[in-house]
Computed example of a mutant assay.
Amino acid sequence: MPETPTTADFRDQVVVVTGAGRGLGRRYALDFAAAGAFVVVHARRADAAREVVAEIGHRGGHAVPVVADARDGAAIVAGALAEGGRIDALVVNAGAVRDRSFGRMTADEWHEVVDVHLGGAYAVTAAAWPHLCTQRYGRIVLTTSGAGMHGNFGQANYAAAKAGIIALAKTLAIEGARFGIGVNAVAPMAHTGMTDGVFDDDLRAGLPAESVSPFVLALAHPACTRGGAVLETGGGWAAELRWERAAGVRFDTGTLTPAAVLADLERLGDFTTGSTHPATTADCLDVALGR
């Protein structure tokens, strides 16, 4: 076990933060720089990226802007390597919402949100992956949401993308472990421009971006040994989320019919006794076979 650090020091670390022009991404960039990192500040708008870089510079930190669409992972990573020479940590934060009930949602609204969140996470991570594998070290923090776990009215596009990011993080954690790459996901709850229209005064006051950032920095730190975790956090509180499986019902295959399933449908969702916490696809196969 590595020794637990007394400070979260990021000196000599190059950290890329996507969507860092405002909101949570801006907060992450400022805090990484304050901890000593050389921060690559990605934003879609040049003025937003440069403002954050200037703010970091005024505080004595070091940062450079990279301007690109969140889905252009190759451009983001190329800019980061050109300016920083390496990438030690990647925080994928860029996102957008186009909220509308599913029956009224257009194909463009669906594709744009899924492409920015899930497609953007894929694109920038795929571009950085060969570099991280070659150097045999890296930390990746992807951004999901409670909507990806539970769904949310008017956010079918956003929720679907965020659920995909959970699966992406868990798969990359498995594949990256042998290369020293730690991959986790964070589900932040914070008052930002994206949530301002749906948060009431209590939520705005109780969920500042500053209370999420320390958890993201911890997941991106060299001392973090977790992989495949989904960390829900807001207001200074955090907890890891995991899957739970009900005890289930084993039917007699000789008499198994749709009617038999309907008769016991409620019991399939009974979590009161005998529930388990599957963690791998092998766990799924084992329980199906009664092993």
Rank of each mutant, 00 (worst) to 15 (best):
V16W: 06
A238S: 15
G60L: 11
A123F: 05
S145K: 03
I165D: 05
T4V: 07
L268S: 13
E112D: 05
I87Y: 00
L241T: 01
G227T: 01
L142T: 07
W237F: 14
W129P: 01
D47P: 04
L217N: 00
A80C: 13
D99P: 01
D47E: 15
M149Q: 13
D115E: 09
T281L: 15
E83G: 11
V66C: 12
G73D: 10
F102Q: 11
A173P: 04
A167I: 02
V141C: 13
A279C: 10
N184C: 03
G84A: 13
T233K: 12
A123I: 00
P188R: 15
G61Q: 03
V183Y: 02
V97A: 15
T281P: 06
R104A: 15
A147V: 03
A279W: 04
F271S: 06
F215K: 09
A246D: 10
M149L: 12
G254R: 08
P65M: 10
Q13A: 09
L24Y: 14
G227A: 11
A263N: 04
L132S: 05
L219W: 05
R267A: 09
V216Y: 06
E109V: 00
V14S: 04
R98F: 10
E175Q: 08
A96N: 12
R22F: 05
L231M: 09
G120D: 09
R44F: 05
G60K: 15
R44G: 13
V39Y: 07
T225R: 14
D201S: 14
A282P: 00
R71V: 09
G274W: 01
A82M: 05
E266K: 03
Y122G: 10
D9W: 10
D99W: 05
